[in-house]
Design a binder for these strands. Sequence first.
DNA 1: GTGCTATCAATCAGACGGTT
DNA 2: AACCGTCTGATTGATAGCAC
Length: 546
Amino acid sequence: FQEVPKVGAEGTYPIMMMIFNQGKTNKFNKTQTGACMRNKMVEICPFMALSFHFFWRWHCQKETFPNMENNGNWFQLKVLYGARPQSRSSEKKGKGKGPERTGADSVVVGNDYGEESSDDEICEAGNQNPLETAISKGTHTRFMKIALNSAGIFVTRKVTHVPRSSAAKMADLAGVPESQIRRMGQWNTDTMTNSYLDSLPRQFMRVMAGFENDASYHLLRGIEEPCSDLKRMVFPWVDYWRNRHANNAVNQTTTFLQDAAVMMDVIPEHPIWKHELFKTQLFLNFQSKVKSHITSNTETESSILRRFVPKVELQLSSINQILREFNERQRQSDQAQRQLQQAFNNVISGKQQLQLSVRLNNDNQATETTGTVASSPHTNINNTGTNVTSPPQPPQHPSENTSPLVNEVPVISPTPNTTANATISLPYTNEGIPVYKMSRQVATVTDLWDEWMVGRDGFWSIEELESKWGTKWRSHDRKWFNIRKKIIDAVNDLQKDIGLSSSSAISVLQGVMNARHWSLDRLGTELQKGTYFPSPETKRRKLGLP
DNA sequence: GTGCTATCAATCAGACGGTT
DNA sequence: AACCGTCTGATTGATAGCAC
């Protein structure tokens, strides 16, 4: 970490530099650098990400801070380590389907990687410290895919290369000169760039961090300086070794505290906030000061906007209005689509009878057949549509429509189905009662409520199954049902006791699950045990308290 | 030659379900 | 309800083979 002066303005700002001397385009071990600065948006700030990563490891995971007495103790440690912390792979021989590997090619000493240094070699070493094991290529790819997919970006090729190309494109769109982009991406080959220029393309860094120029580098969350007592609580080990080595380099204590003050509102449910540091009065005081800087400045910007560009604000508010209307229409459209999907599922599953009209025009004698079909994925309609096979007596479908034509319906009894995934047909008992195993894929209160009240994949809802066949449909799934029922009861309790809508009640329970890191099963168990009540009112009612 | 995907094996946490 | 062995799914490391 370095503190660099602003160009053309007073003050400095911290930057994080990475130094590397090997890589695909660096065949001659030339020392190259990459650098970044604090981002305007705390959510994507690399300082935030790295300092939270370290805080989590040293405070929450209780990882031992390395002894920095000499370089050999910590030079091989990886910032992002890849092996399982509890991995016992050293006892095993070889993994994967390939031939067993020998340990001979796995020893990596110093920086002399020679001609072929692949990640795999670093990953191998038999009894190596997991903290010294680099993240594998496959894991890197998976992490990238998860991150990209969660942002709605689907990449099929060069997944790990995406930031390299997209950063260049983003910078180009933001007007960063090509020369700067070349320098950041190490795409230059001319002698001047390679040998003489400062390797930090400051303009590129600033734009990617959300700032126009050095003078405009002004972080609202960076104004408030934490007191030394608070700072000492963050990375005390780092402070210790910095003092021993008389190292004045910037450390992340201040930026961590400033970022934490804001991030707590961005991801309030993250378990890191359980740490005692964030409950101390020192931190709470500091956090309120940081927030006051942010809110006061936001208002200033808004008043400036009102004073100088009233029309812009008017336009913005009308655009907002349009967006709201658009969202409302979109919501209605989504709802209609869901209803349509539900109706379609009902038809597929046989819950809803379907009227078909078939006209055959193959020859001059046009035939028209009309029939009502309680359809099933196994429904067979032969060429004429009138030659009906006599099916085994179908179960009593919970359909309310009984058509006079129902006896013509070609329904084939669904074949028994034992896999949880292939839910397109239901097995039936000899008495014609469907045997439904509740979905193991359901992990949220919303999905459970849906399965209970609407039914999954077009099958009967649990409510319907209960009302039609009592407990018989679930003779092999009692425990699961009973635990889940407690959650449905809790939703109903919230509606009854404090007047919430069903969707609000579902949100409340889902919020509890998220905050406490409970699975559905855990929530159900806690409700069953009476160790958790959805509301104080419910608790009073159930326990008969005044 | 390199990056990526498909695939297998190892491992772990948590769910499941039978027994007491 | 507690216990405990088994099952299941998720995660990770690793390799072969394909595409470029």
